[in-house]
Simulated scan of single mutants.
Amino acid sequence: TGCMLRAQFWPAKLRWLRRTNRALFRRVTRWRSPASWIFDNIFGVGSSSHSMASATGMYNVDAERWDDEMIDRCGIRLQQLDTIGDADRSTKRLREFRDATIFAAIGDGAASNIGSRADRRGTAAINYGTSGAVRIIRSKAVARKQTVPFGLFQYVVDAHRVVIGGAISNAGNLRQWCVRELHVPDEQQALSRTAAAEDSLVVLPFLVRERSPDWPENLYGTFTGLTQTTTATDLLRASETSTFYRLAEILDQIAQQTPVTDVIVSGGILHSAASLRILADSLGRDIRLSRELESSLRGAAVYSLQALGRNVAPLAAGSIIRHNRALARKHRQRRSEQRALQLLLEPAQS
């Protein structure tokens, strides 16, 4: 299915609901995403796109339809799921929709890659806002020859492309927690590029249950290396940097299968030049800034226009943040310390 068997996806939710509230489970006539429900009510198009269906964990990527075995294991019927289709005519008898082709919603990640110019070969996208993700688009033909690395996802973009990647639950939300609870006086000043690579603190940034690349569901947020001289500034900087290390692990897994020649960054992180420099050093790569702040919105528009046969002018290339090689070497060592701490604690907390 391209999805992990974890609580984030439909199979775990369906089986949980069937186990804990069987009476309610039996009364359900249709299982659908909020997007399908909204589009049905507004536009009169109730189908689910292949893209959205593939993010449920109930979709067979190779067969391009709902997965029979997963349907059976979840105790539901095929008729309870939306039909799958990427575009349709509206059933609403409104003048505005008379000649309109309505495109079903596509996945936010796929749209973000398209909208940020990260739909080209060898180009990966990093989105860093409240949460974070690393994704790369590749052809279905190539994807069928490769196995999705454990812990990552593979969703459909359209009839010819898929997006592979991983998401982290702790990103900008962790930074905001630090600012709020630690009363950091100047968060930008706290993000010293050199200090980030030389911090003695090792952090597992798991204030929220984490996802990719290894789904450490039994681990919680952890700080080691605290001393009397540790400041709120140190905690903020080490915490944010630790989330970048998670993104670096995902990117490395992707690059083992698909050569990555360009990395485009979008999301709220674009408002912090200091964070962007530390991100580049943590990845050990130069990064390119997206010129589109709302990459998912632009991507949804570009996707629809291209499906209609329209030519869309490419987004201009953004500026580049160069990584510091000396600092990148230090970050690689700190990444290994983070992995070692996680391995040390996993048996104790599992």
Rank of each mutant, 00 (worst) to 15 (best):
A317H: 09
T123N: 02
G225M: 00
A326Q: 11
P216L: 06
R77T: 12
L341N: 03
Q257K: 03
T261S: 13
R15W: 03
R209L: 14
D67H: 15
T29P: 04
P347W: 01
T261D: 14
D252R: 14
S336W: 06
N127C: 11
L308I: 00
M58S: 11
S242N: 03
I136T: 12
R120G: 12
L204A: 04
A313V: 01
A255E: 15
D88C: 06
A141G: 05
V265Y: 03
R120Y: 11
S336G: 07
N218H: 14
R180P: 00
L315M: 09
R73N: 11
L283R: 02
T130I: 08
R135S: 07
A12Q: 12
A313D: 09
P314C: 01
Q146Y: 13
T229C: 06
I137H: 08
T241H: 02
A125Q: 13
I320D: 00
A255Q: 13
E249P: 06
D99F: 10
G268P: 05
T83F: 14
E96T: 11
N21D: 15
R117E: 11
P259C: 08
L236G: 02
T227L: 05
S192R: 09
T261E: 14
I106E: 02
P205H: 05
Y303C: 02
A348R: 14
C178I: 00
R325N: 11
V157G: 06
R246H: 05
V179Q: 06
I137A: 08
H50K: 13
A340T: 08
A273P: 08
A255H: 12
I106V: 15
A326K: 10
T233G: 08
S139I: 00
P314Y: 05
A307Q: 14
R180S: 12
R175H: 02
N60H: 15
G151H: 10
Y303I: 04
V148T: 14
N324H: 09
L279I: 07
A125E: 10
A301L: 10
A167Y: 01
M58A: 10
D281L: 10
F244P: 03
D199K: 11
S47R: 09
I320G: 01
R121I: 02
L226C: 02
R6W: 13
V203C: 05
D108I: 03
Q228H: 15
H50V: 08
R193V: 10
N113Y: 07
C74D: 08
G107D: 12
E294C: 10
A63H: 12
A118S: 13
N324S: 13
A133R: 10
A348I: 08
Q228R: 11
A280Q: 03
G132N: 03
R339L: 02
Q188R: 15
G267I: 09
T123W: 07
I168S: 06
T222H: 00
D72V: 01
I287S: 01
L204M: 01
L315Q: 05
Q349Y: 15
T130W: 05
N60T: 08
L219A: 07
I42P: 00
G85I: 09
G85S: 12
L5Y: 12
Y59M: 06
V134F: 02
V45T: 04
